[in-house]
Design a protein around this nucleic acid. Structure first.
Ligand code: MN
Ligand code: MN
Ligand code: ZN
Ligand code: ZN
Lengths: 146, 146
DNA sequence: GACCCAATCAATAATCATTCCTGAAACGGA
DNA sequence: TCCGTTTCAGGAATGATTATTGATTGGGTC
């Protein structure tokens, strides 16, 4: 198991005032095990394997705290529960509309889109995100096969 | 009232095989009246003013049909019900995280982002969208005033 | 104009992700 | 150890959306 709880994470907890409880640690570990982009439910199932007493609500709370202090990120697709991501480096993710699998899309240059957006609206822009849907190779192949 | 039911729309109904019922026409009209980016509930309230018998479920059904045949578009933000838009020209919209108001963001050049995305994933990309959140001028001003 | 059939509708129940609530437990400092 | 605060587990509640179902409608046919 990689060193999930590095200095950076401990520091973010310290600065935020939140305590690093065993449940929050467990959620963090589950998130790094389930190397994909798990939903709250997915995380819950992993956490429960080691500690059957945790409730789904607790996982939601923990995820919310972790996101608030900037340790994880959430991504939202319509027609799907929220997915969580340990990868804090800005990047794009694509979700298969058929099976739900999420994969990263590296190497896309977004350029100055964010500045362009801010320059063209009187709103104070607080968040921008690229939403990508598609068919994964497996589902794309099965479309009229299997 | 502008000519909402232009040739284009009638033609899309004809080609799809769906019939242009009074309820669907009412939803379309409500959508063009509520010149913003109304939710299904918003549309429902407008429709109900003229025909109190329509049910919310009917509005959802009508919106779904209208989107399917390409007469309207839906946009999704987390923490908000789906918004519907008569403006079919590709464009960006920003939503105020405080009051929920949606406004268009003109003049942003997305460049070849979509091609870049498709070139960098084995997925067959079926949809991309830019999600923008912010504070509208009014809410931004009130942040530490009013 | 009466009749027929398929499409559509209204009303309501069900679903599902997420949040809220409550009393109990754990933690940290005086 | 005692106290106040934070966190937790469990379960109920919420809110948007979808599914179900039986009734209604409307357009074509005789
Ligand atoms: Mn990712
Ligand atoms: Mn718009
Ligand atoms: Zn797939
Ligand atoms: Zn606002």
């Amino acid at each position: 198991m990689p060193e999930v709880l590095d200095h950076d994470i401990r520091e973010k907890f310290r600065r935020s005032g939140y305590t690093l409880t065993s449940q929050r640690r467990a959620v963090l570990e589950a998130l790094s095990e389930a190397r994909g982009h798990p939903s709250a439910e997915d995380v819950y199932l992993v956490v429960k394997r080691k500690n059957p007493r945790v409730a789904l609500g607790t996982v939601y709370q923990a995820l919310s705290v972790l996101e608030e202090i900037g340790v994880i990120e959430s991504k939202h697709w319509s027609d799907s529960p929220t997915r969580y991501d340990l990868n804090l480096v800005p990047h794009l993710d694509v979700r298969c509309v058929r099976c739900g699998e999420v994969a990263e899309v590296p190497g896309v240059e977004m350029g100055d889109i964010d500045q362009q957006i801010q320059a063209n609206t009187p709103y104070e822009v607080t968040r921008t995100a690229m939403l990508i849907e598609g068919l994964c190779p497996k589902c794309s192949g099965e479309r009229n096969g299997a």
